[in-house]
Design a binder for these strands. Sequence first.
DNA 1: AAAGTTATGTGACTTATGACACACTTCCTC
DNA 2: GAGGAAGTGTGTCATAAGTCACATAACTTT
Lengths: 224, 224
Amino acid sequence: MSKQAEFAVILKMNPMFADLGADELQRLANLCHTQHLANGEVLFQKGDPGDALFGVRRGQIRIETGASDGSRLTLNFMGPGDLFGEVAVLDGQNRTADATAGEASELFVLRREDFLAFLEREPKVAIKIIMLLCQRIRWQSERMEESMLQPLPVRLARRLCALAADYGSEVHISQEQLGVFVGAARESVNRQLQAWRKEAILDLQRGRILLKNMTKLTSIARNE
Amino acid sequence: MSKQAEFAVILKMNPMFADLGADELQRLANLCHTQHLANGEVLFQKGDPGDALFGVRRGQIRIETGASDGSRLTLNFMGPGDLFGEVAVLDGQNRTADATAGEASELFVLRREDFLAFLEREPKVAIKIIMLLCQRIRWQSERMEESMLQPLPVRLARRLCALAADYGSEVHISQEQLGVFVGAARESVNRQLQAWRKEAILDLQRGRILLKNMTKLTSIARNE
DNA sequence: AAAGTTATGTGACTTATGACACACTTCCTC
DNA sequence: GAGGAAGTGTGTCATAAGTCACATAACTTT
């Protein structure tokens, strides 16, 4: 399979591009380049202009941000097939976090100027993108308002479910980082996780959480 | 001034259309119609397809929603110069609230099909819209995550400042509705307002709040 | 293997806010 | 103007979650 065809598949999996037609998608994918990164190499830093969209072909990219105390907090891991920077490529605003290769990686790169020129050539695609962005706005405002008002167990369960969707039942994350994600103190996170361990919903190891009962967890996430 | 020119001015005031060129803006405004509503007349209801964007020429439109207990809660008042349904007109999704005329009103109406055809004719405008939507997405995700984690006084101050921007220093809203806005219990809202009254930041009347010290209020909103 | 560093577990305390209960006021309606 | 509805003011209590303090466990470095 060609590089471009491979990229088209990745684009297709992202909700943002999911309902483009196969032909449109392929023409878009044809604009991509590839880029190699060595382990530890920096892809971009907070404040850099958002001049491209990236897809992970192989390897791992860490999205992280410097915390106020100088320590670094990982916000997300992007693995093969994941796409990131979709919004940045459209509006060109500065990056809000750093991205570093967690291992030797190869990325698909779709440059902003190429993408914009494409949209100008294909206004029907631009309109589809507009609709998708609108959906995202609605979805965000519905979810957010609701989500942050939920009690901690619900927020925590939701985040764990989301992580599980990416990594399977073995989530590799520290409780401190989990706390940052859900906007809670580390201790509170720990206490809730302990409670769930006693109910056999999950198991805990250093830097790792093993989800044992996703059924129960998702029902908590739905707030019963 | 022609109807269309008047509408162009309203569009221009909305961030969503603010940086369109004067010519593009005028061509867009030329697509508008007008519609008259008698006092109490229903413009649309929750669940109706979002097939138009509205601007208030004169009168008042209330955006409200039926609460679970059957009572109605007013979510927003739109006065002359206000624009609403910008997102609906783009993505065509169903309305999420009801809109009713609070008095005899005249509206500018920009129909979805006209707007989409316009975007297809003018891809450069479509791209500008895309960027604006992206900004909105960023803005939302930054604000939301941050905002809901703030303590109640901050959320309350922010909402009051926002309302003041629309209505001046005399905000006409019940404490119960204010509670809905900021996601808090009526009693908590009341207690905070009382505290501020004692500090001479504001004054309270039935169904009305008089902001007396916006400087202090905005500094609270910024979380000191 | 000793020492240091990071992650986790847990108790004691504090604080913010929600929940309930009820008094009081204003306004509306008949 | 009597009665009711809606809005407001306040006390009491319960609870969720943050904070602080420290113990313990697990990896790392030398």
